[in-house]
Design a protein around this nucleic acid. Sequence first.
DNA 1: TCATATACTGATTAATTTATCAGTATCTCC
DNA 2: GGAGATACTGATAAATTAATCAGTATATGA
Lengths: 107, 107
Amino acid sequence: MPIYNGCGYSLTMQVIGGKWKICIIDALRNGPLRPSELFKAIPEATERVINHQIRELLMYKVIDRTIYAEQPPRSEYFITELGKTVFPLIDSLDDWGDKNREIYGDI
Amino acid sequence: MPIYNGCGYSLTMQVIGGKWKICIIDALRNGPLRPSELFKAIPEATERVINHQIRELLMYKVIDRTIYAEQPPRSEYFITELGKTVFPLIDSLDDWGDKNREIYGDI
DNA sequence: TCATATACTGATTAATTTATCAGTATCTCC
DNA sequence: GGAGATACTGATAAATTAATCAGTATATGA
């Protein structure tokens, strides 16, 4: 399986493996959000950084955006059908960490 | 869920998220291996780098080692019971990438 | 007209992660 | 004694990722 480069795992990691991507996906889980709302949802990261991660998630078709022809400009990001298929992955990873946290109490 | 820092996801990623960790875990999947065998199994990475990732996997108790009191020195790395619980995670991530690879044919 | 809000981006620096190179130490075999 | 195998580590360089700062542009309302 993993000759590493080109294996499924490394592709998946390329898609969801950025520092803030999971936060963005999670924030969009119960409905679309405008950029400003996303920034508020993730105050630990700067807007520039979140924008950068958004760009990648768009590129990988995990999220998409609706641009409204309004003024001031308005846009909304939302999870695509493809994006919804990563929910189980994220949940499994999150569960594993929660379940095993006490093992690492000393680290 | 993810306030990011301290969430289960980020802990899991700390544990299995290094560049070569999955290769090491995968190589040990059908039985213990000596360091030199691991190096052979992952020729893309240098020995020093693999050693470094091994150190972390040991620290996180994903793998363990048996040191034989022989000369020349012999040791073997193997997956712990905890380590075996990450197999399903790795498999899911690997499957997701394989299943969706064609979507990214243009990237 | 000036402050504010919207969405977004370029250039640069800082931090983290990987990689390279060279080194330690011990014992066997020729 | 010297070459080779074993396992492992320190110091540093390179590459990758993330963060900071400042900027674009458009339009509203005071």
